[in-house]
Amino acid sequence: MWDSIIIKPFINSLLLIYNLTGENFGIAIIVFTVLIKAITHPLIARQIKSSGALQDLQKDEEYLEMQKKYKNDKERLGQAQMELYKKKGIKPFASCLPTLIQFPIIIGLYQSIIQTMGTAPLQVFNLVSKIGLGMSNFFSFIPSVKNPFALIPLNNQFLWMDLSQPDRVYIPGISFGIPVLAIFVVITSFIQNKLISPTGGDQQANQATGMMNIYMPLLMGYFAYSLSSGLALYFAISNVISLVQYAALGRVKLKDIFKKKAAPTKKLSA
């Protein structure tokens, strides 16, 4: 079912884009990621707005006062918070639903890129079994649209990379390859995390946020370093588009990226 609803349509779309963009898989990944991000933008926009409102609320005087006032009465604090959310028109769970809807799309996109990049027999066998003629028939009015089977094997060369292999750039005089994309992924993940992480919470929350800000980019960088560069390209493009989305919604404050967090509020409850 997952294959029929998500993976097959994604793979066939990816192949169609590959076909229409000069049969370069790197360009196909970029265009496909941009398209999926554009389609899911309304969901992301809602999520960013909701989480932004929640972040802003944490700096609100009324909110801070309430934290102080009910620091020993969790039940009352909860009620007061809900009343404040209502008053300010904030739906605290509004940022969760878009995330939940996006999640299968992101995983599907990710899996379809992996499956389409396969260069070994079992991978190509699995890929071929998912190819259908429906999409190429539908777009057959476009003269350059080919039978998708004729596109196999795919051209995995993009810039200096073989997209099915981990990315390394070899510079004369340096004995090891430099993982340029992995470094880019670490940097963009770091910036993205800095932008979306909440500010002004208690000390515990700030510690957890700080941990996420360091380990998540490193984790993404590790995957970009060790997996095929096609996936690293997807991570990189995805991060760049997310940053653009944040900027478009006014959530990017460049001066905040390298700024230390504001002094944490004291822990309010035991």
Partner: peptide, 24 residues
């Protein structure tokens, strides 16, 4: 936060388990 990082790591690793495998 640690759990979240672990879940994301496991999801990415699970989704990419066939990448780079000899797969023949």
């Amino acid at each position: 936060a640690a759990l979240l990082i672990l879940i994301i790591a496991a999801t990415l690793a699970g989704c990419t388990s066939t990448v780079g495998a000899s797969s023949s």
